[in-house]
Nucleic acid binder design. Structure first.
Lengths: 185, 185
DNA sequence: ACCTGAACACCGTTCAAGT
DNA sequence: ACCTGAACACCGTTCAAGT
């Protein structure tokens, strides 16, 4: 006689994401997740291999949310960089998880797509990937250091981000003109 | 009758750093550290408050090593950026720990000093801190993403780092001329 | 004064037994 | 077919007892 399902993978990942946001990775215990969805810890292993893959699922959700935010930023470099940092502020633990767990190649490509479109129109196809890596590395490092408290030499961090963003966007727009199609062609 | 000391804080932190390098944070158990220095786990609590502060000590060592490497890079922006990445490659787990644990302000200032000297001569005092943050954020993000496997859209990562480094150093050198003292004055 | 065995609370995970 | 209690191995940490 089959027992009715008392939860689902979706509900489990939801609960894990909520616990992560509220208390960091150490708060995501199998027991806490189980209690949040109304079962006992061993039942979770019917839906998920182990804690590590559960956290990987949470990381995938975070990647998808970031992709949605970046896609909504409409291929504008400044808007993309601002949306990226805002995601880090809104969901710091999810942001950290993104760069801790390994995300699959397809999802990675989806997240990168809006940035690549924007850099392609800024510096041309030839250097679009290099430019995208320059921008995402900078933004990732800035937010990582900001969240980790590594920026404590004074000054306004909003202004520091603006400085870097303006500098990068301007210098990318000015660079590599020779590699872009001539204007008006 | 006093028992002779069978270990020391230095030896304990050494062992923890070695375990971190070899197996990541999860390999740094109090039992493994204790065994490595020849005592039982409870004895560690005579020298260190708890595991978290032990990892903080390891992080401080890593910060000091990075400071030494950057100081040896002699205030040249390109050399600094290359040395920074090399540290990440040589000690990936220590690198990650640096941006996970909170390092104290004095040590942070010491690590930043060589970079600030180099950016001061590149863009002038007024924007030295902004420029230092731009460079360290980029390098931190690049190495973090590289170590985490977030760069998988193809291409040579050495070349990608060169691209970013050359772009940043050149654009910083060209920018802010108005804020620097006139040449030869 | 340092070290240790024993104990405690808390993990992740497995599995036989229930329905 | 899903759920659970019980159990296991393994953590970090405390503390009374040893020397």
């Amino acid at each position: 006689m089959p027992t009715p399902e008392r939860t689902s993978l979706d509900e489990i990942v939801d609960a894990a994401a909520r616990l992560l946001d509220e208390g960091g990775p150490s708060a995501v215990t199998m027991q806490a997740v189980a209690q949040a969805v109304g079962v006992k810890a061993p039942s979770l292993y019917k839906r998920v291999r182990d804690r590590e893959t559960l956290l990987a699922r949470v990381g995938e959700r975070a990647a998808d949310e970031l992709t949605a935010r970046l896609t909504a930023a409409s291929d504008d470099l400044n808007a993309l960089l601002i949306a990226f940092r805002r995601f880090g502020h809104d969901r710091p633990e999810a942001f950290r998880l993104l760069f801790t767990t390994v995300v699959d190649a397809d999802r990675l490509a989806a997240t990168s797509a809006p940035v690549l479109r924007a850099t392609t129109s800024a510096v041309g196809e030839k250097h679009a990937l290099d430019a995208a890596r320059l921008l995402t590395a900078w933004a990732t490092g800035f937010v990582t250091m900001e969240l980790g408290g590594a920026f404590r030499l004074g000054g306004d961090l909003d202004q520091a981000y603006d400085y870097g963003r303006a500098h990068l966007v301007a210098s990318l727009s000015n660079a590599h003109d020779g590699d872009r199609p001539a204007q008006g062609s």
